[in-house]
Design a protein around this nucleic acid. Structure first.
Length: 421
RNA sequence: GUGGCUAUAGCUCAGUUGGUUAGAGUGCCAGGUUGUGGCCCUGGAGGUCGAGGGUUCAAGUCCCUCUAGCCACCCCA
């Protein structure tokens, strides 16, 4: 088709899909609120530096996926690729930190990453997430997961599994990295190029390898959890105990690592059986106690998750139709146009949703449109009704039909709708 | 960013070894019912065959480039 088409990797949220996404988002916000989380929104663009320092300057997100531009004053700005660093920034720039800690926050909005589009993967996508700032108690890690899990349940989304790991912190992770290097070092020659590069740049990432030749080596590789320092070990146990208390099943996954630099200790993802390859992640999250300092603020522990709304709504059963029953007001002849327009306004004033068709098409065509358009009831005014001051009211469900004086037609329509539903 | 598959009506898709005015279903508009939806019947509109170039007497069909989507990697939501 000729004309201008939308940019690669973007999608129009047509009514049906938008309704599903709004539903998921509102449900998420409401569930988070029931755990004491208050919603906030941050700008869609931020100083580039926020992500370079927060997400990590060696990560894929920063090195090749950011939409970065200069504004007219020469500032480097970036369309946000994720939501956590902006929330931490907003926390410090506001009075949120004056309220009792921890601060429990939820957010929603579009995110932008310049990577190759595919099913459930967009360059502009939407995330819903929560963050808990200002306290490092491991029970909070479990709480965040509980919010996510309850959300999934209420969305009716089955086929999911919770993957849980601890990737240690600044005191124990270096030792684990050494152990990994020692383990794979002797076999460098037989590793695929990609994995050799991973080992060089970010050794933990080799645990992500899906190369069958590496499977054996991975099997015997050191586990993150064997190297946890006392603090991390105890914290990990408390997270698991709290999850049991919440009644949430989890799968310990020693191969789970996260792509963004700021995570430490708890890392988790929710996977779905219908999503394949490396796109199976519905949610991702974890603890990021070092992020605040990376950004140049005082120490401030935090934990949170983010979920991709496109992926969630792709897999969850669609929400029911709009609850408001529709009334269509139809003119049977041109001379009734003004009357049906006035009538439709009165219907709306009475709290009903009304569509008016005062055009010149045949009544048959208008009835057909009303039926296809989801009308529960139609009000017909033509020459006959005009001369007697009446409105013909027809219920589309059973085809029953009554004549009602124009003055009381709105009340009668409401009563009939109420009875029939 | 790498490799592969795909692109025909609003939507889902046919289209023979290259060969006349490119089809179906569905949706849309209208008629059958001088004012009444669903079921049925009839008719109509709607296509630069993703874009550009090339081969050929002749291209929806073969070749090249680009664009977009999908799949597997990379990586993430």
């Amino acid at each position: 088709m000729a004309g201008i088409s939308r940019p690669r990797g973007t999608d129009d949220l047509l009514p049906e899909r938008l309704q599903a996404m709004e539903h998921a988002r509102q449900l998420g916000t409401a569930i988070a609120a029931s755990y004491g989380y208050r919603p906030l929104e941050t700008p869609i663009f931020e100083a580039t530096e926020l992500f370079v320092r927060g997400v990590g300057d060696t990560t894929d997100v920063v090195t090749r996926e950011m939409y970065t531009f200069e504004d007219r004053a020469g500032r480097s700005l970036t369309l946000r690729p994720e939501g956590t660093a902006p929330v931490v920034r907003a926390f410090w720039e506001s009075d949120l930190r004056q309220a009792p800690l921890p601060a429990r926050l939820s957010y929603w909005g579009p995110m932008f990453r310049y990577d190759r589009p595919g099913r459930g993967r967009y360059r502009q996508f939407h995330q819903f997430g929560v963050e808990v700032l200002g306290e490092s108690e491991p029970e909070l890690d479990a709480e965040v997961i509980a919010v996510a899990w309850r959300w999934l349940l209420e969305l009716g989304l089955g086929g999911t599994s919770l993957q849980l790991n601890s990737i240690g912190d600044a005191t124990c992770r270096p030792q684990f990295r050494e152990a990994l290097l020692d383990h794979f070092g002797p076999h460098l020659a037989q590793l695929p190029d990609l994995d050799r590069e991973r080992l060089r740049r970010n050794p933990l990432r080799i645990l992500d390898s899906k190369d069958p030749d590496v499977a054996g080596l991975l099997e015997a590789a050191p586990k993150t959890t064997d190297f946890l320092c006392d603090g991390c070990h105890e914290a990990f146990l408390r997270v698991q105990e709290a999850l049991v208390a919440y009644g949430i099943h989890f799968q310990l996954n020693p191969l789970l690592v996260r792509g963004l630099d700021y995570y430490q200790r708890t890392a988790f993802e929710v996977w779905h059986e219908d999503l394949h390859g490396a796109q199976n992640s519905l949610f991702g999250g974890g603890r990021y106690d070092g992020l605040s300092e990376e950004l140049g603020y005082p120490h401030c522990p935090g934990v949170g998750f983010a979920a991709g709304l496109e992926r969630v709504t792709m897999l969850a059963p669609p929400p029911g139709p709009a609850p408001l029953p529709l009334v269509w007001a139809l003119a049977a002849q041109p001379e009734a146009a003004a009357t049906v327009i006035r009538l439709s306004e009165q219907l709306r004033g009475a709290g009903l949703a009304a569509v008016v068709d005062a055009g010149r098409r045949s009544l048959k065509a208008k009835m057909r449109s009303a039926e296809r358009g989801g009308a529960s009831l139609v009000c017909i005014v033509g020459a006959e009704e005009l001369s007697q001051g009446l409105v013909t009211i027809r219920l589309l469900g059973d085809g029953s039909q009554v004549s009602e004086p124009l003055r009381t037609a709105v009340d009668r329509a409401r009563a009939l709708l109420f009875q029939s539903s």
